[in-house]
């Protein structure tokens, strides 16, 4: 009996926590933007990521490999882009997000022109549940949410791969 009760509780707790974890920042805070005409919306479902994972892509450059490595861990991607009111949307977005739930990973400001925020929802280790990027420029606003079991180290490796590429170009 006790065992039954324990199992039941455990299942319920597990169910409630996973249901909670699945909700992404855009669905939670920015649902009003999704059907807004000013926004371009892109969504990739978990199922699509499964299909991508099965795709046979032969890549030989570092950039593409780094991207594939990150994509493998993704379970959802949502992008919102607006080409107006960039700074206002940015301000609103940063205020809407619960800072107890999302931790600021990095904030970049470019000479007062553009602000970029990177927010993460984590479990206290290197693998995070969600990576959220908010870009607020003079005439553009971008909101991107990556959901999955995202390895921060892979993200930084990917960024590094692009940095190297840029250096080679110059």
């Amino acid at each position: 009996m006790r065992f039954l009760l324990f199992t039941f509780t455990a299942i319920l707790l597990a169910a409630s926590t996973t249901a909670h974890a699945q909700i992404d920042a855009i669905s939670k805070y920015f649902s009003k933007y999704v059907d807004d005409e000013r926004f371009t919306v892109v969504y990739i479902s978990p199922k699509m990521f499964q299909l991508i994972d099965k795709m046979d892509i032969n890549l030989d450059d570092a950039e593409a490999n780094a991207i594939k490595d990150v994509v493998k861990d993704l379970r959802g991607l949502r992008v919102l882009v607006a080409e107006e009111n960039g700074k206002e949307f940015y301000k609103e977005a940063t205020q809407l997000i619960n800072k107890k739930e999302y931790e600021v990973l990095m904030t970049v400001r470019n000479k007062g022109e553009e602000s970029v925020d990177f927010l993460i929802k984590d479990n206290g280790n290197d693998v995070i549940d969600e990576l959220l990027m908010i870009v607020g420029g003079p005439d553009e606003f971008v909101l991107m949410s990556f959901v999955g079991k995202i390895d921060i180290n892979k993200i930084s490796e990917m960024a590094k791969a692009f940095q190297d590429e840029d250096d080679n170009d110059e």
Binding site: I44, A64, M106, M133, F162
Partner: peptide
Amino acid sequence: YEPQTEDEAMAEATAALQLLASKLNG
């Protein structure tokens, strides 16, 4: 808002990650 094929989806994801990477690089 979802792409119809996995090729399109992969292109989207790649573009998004490229944007992320470039922003991360500042």
